[in-house]
Write a protein that binds this DNA or RNA. Structure first.
Lengths: 337, 337
DNA sequence: AGAGCATAGTAAACCGATTTAGTAAGAGAT
DNA sequence: ATCTCTTACTAAATCGGTTTACTATGCTCT
């Protein structure tokens, strides 16, 4: 920019006014403005965003914290976030912590050092004391300064169990999420409540839990093998997510159970490949992309709002049941009394 | 930092020397250093990364350009990139262009404005005239300043066709990638060459092409329907990627063909869910995560190397054939003469 | 005593922009 | 002729650090 100003024989200030169409530019005649713009184009001038951010104390950058990138869940949310963010002229940093606690603590601080104007945490518990507005997708802890975007888990559980109950299922097995997943606890509470409502017994031996960091179908496969080995019969299985449902179906098949004839399976999330499984997965759809978009939108609103303006602490998203081929009516009720 | 210096009764320079452990700090006695560090900890001082980047002309930031985030392909590569980058203290911006040309042009410029020290383009053609070192994953155009990371497509095609040929298949259908995908052309050339080698005829009516922006199995489903409608019989299908293979299998089934008994299907990529399809997908594995890591590693090496140092223009990655359940020996040779 | 050197710092320039406060020149009003 | 107002800018401060060049003090050696 210094070169530009010199080349034009003007001051940097004048150039800056014109380039930024700042109100101060009104005192600069049209002809000069044209000259400046032409020169900028000719010299291929692009303002240095760092310098601008430093001076204006506006970086137009936000930080996104996710557990890991490969996961269908985070990728979908990110794609929604990105959609809204780039459209509004913001860029974002992504960091993934792989559930390592020291990283979960450290990354938000590092991001703030990099002058992000806000944070979006996906399936990650944010600690207190952040200096910037934050949004937590699937956040359930009540942290000052954080807006939680949560699914209506009560409804989600009802949709799934109602569907299974209406097909005649009473002996239902469940797969809970990993302990570190934010939704695990809330969803499990919702499931138990819904089960009570539909008078379905939740048996200890028929509840498994995903274990392990990765998000591979293998985890669901292993838990399902355990459930099958418990000796308790079941005619339906409600899994924590679609990925584990895929593994579960594999395990059921290998044990000689047909899906959905012998065992119905309901997944969760509705990831892209859910529709193209064989059989296609019946699942509780979380609108992950939309949740990402809403997260970004909410965050930007909070960033541009006055510092002490009130903000929502929770935004509830409605789930939807997508019925496909992995659930079917129970042929002969197993629950004969 | 100004506050810190005042609070200590020292100059900013002294504080800076100590905080950064710069060589100039050697003239500052241990006791004072301790004092400074203690105060920094106490006041919870965190240096402003923008200011630092501006002065040092080092942002420790790189830009990653991808077609879209939801795709399994890009997500896997990104996860490899992230792994290496964060470990080395770099952060990165992600932008996705969704195959819109003006964005493909514009984003690298915007990223450079944001002072990225390098670019990684995933399945995206970089234009010439970039000011920073760049790496293109699956880049095939020869652009000055760009290191291409490419799969050995010749080998990939051989692996797949050799496998099919050894199972007795001669009438093989092919699904090419979308025109905008960087690998499409190179891979297709490799396939034709390999076909010649194994004396397999590549018939016009038995070659389809994916069409459409999205990366859903639906695309593969539609192309396969066309292939089935062509009237030409085939006993094997080699698809452009696993996603389309999944759709293809669906279409084959609906047309009454069993996989693998009637038609063998070979996919490409080996995405996570490939192993958990039913039947599990035989596929040519691209080590996408490793490719991402290598891309990041190469880029950082180039960034820290002297400006005019020589750099690799191409790094070739070897594919691997993963045989699973979607391919089988041909029961009765269809190619009776 | 004076030169030479190490020690312990500091003042000020600098990175590349934005922004505030101010100025010089000319026009119009009185 | 002088005052005021507008026009068309400019000088310099600023953002928050890093870095270069320099200084003041004390010690050692001859």
């Amino acid at each position: 920019m210094k070169r530009l100003a010199e080349h034009l024989g003007l001051s940097q200030a004048a150039v800056s006014f014109v380039i930024n169409r700042s109100p101060a530019a009104k005192s600069i005649p049209h002809r000069t403005q044209e000259l400046i713009r032409a020169a900028a184009r000719e010299l291929n001038y692009r303002p240095n965003h760092l310098a601008r951010s430093l001076r204006q104390q506006r970086s137009f950058t936000i930080g996104v914290v996710v557990p890991e990138i490969s996961e269908g869940y985070a990728a979908l949310v990110m794609s929604g976030i990105e959609d809204h963010l780039l459209q509004e002229g913001y860029f974002y940093f992504v960091v993934s912590h792989r559930h390592r606690n020291e990283l979960i603590e450290e990354y938000p601080l590092l991001l703030q050092q990099r002058a992000v104007e806000g944070l979006i945490a996906v399936d990650t518990a944010l600690s207190e004391g952040l200096d910037v507005p934050s949004v937590a997708v699937s956040g359930h802890r009540d942290v000052p300064g954080v807006t939680n975007i949560v699914l209506n888990h009560a409804k989600a559980a009802c949709l799934a169990l109602q569907h299974l109950a209406s097909l005649g299922h009473r002996r239902i097995a469940f797969i809970k999420g990993q302990a570190f997943s934010s939704d695990t606890e809330v969803r499990w509470d919702a499931v138990r409540e819904a089960a009570q409502k539909f008078e379905i017994e939740v048996k200890e031996q028929l509840t498994g839990q995903l274990e392990g960091e990765s998000s591979s179908p293998l985890l669901g496969y292993q838990v399902t093998q355990k459930l099958l080995g418990s000796g308790e019969a079941f005619t339906a299985l409600f899994t924590f997510n679609d990925i584990s449902a895929i593994g579960a179906i594999q395990a059921l098949r290998e044990a000689g159970q047909r899906v959905p004839e012998d065992v119905s399976v309901v997944g969760f999330d509705d990831i892209q490949s859910a529709a193209f499984q064989n059989p296609a997965l019946t699942t509780v759809r979380q609108p992950l992309r939309e949740m990402g978009m809403i997260a970004a939108e909410t965050l930007l609103q909070r960033i541009t709002a006055p510092a002490n303006a009130p903000y929502p602490t929770e935004i509830v998203i409605e789930p939807e049941l997508i019925v496909r081929g992995s659930t079917a009516r129970l042929a002969q009720p197993s629950d004969v009394r």
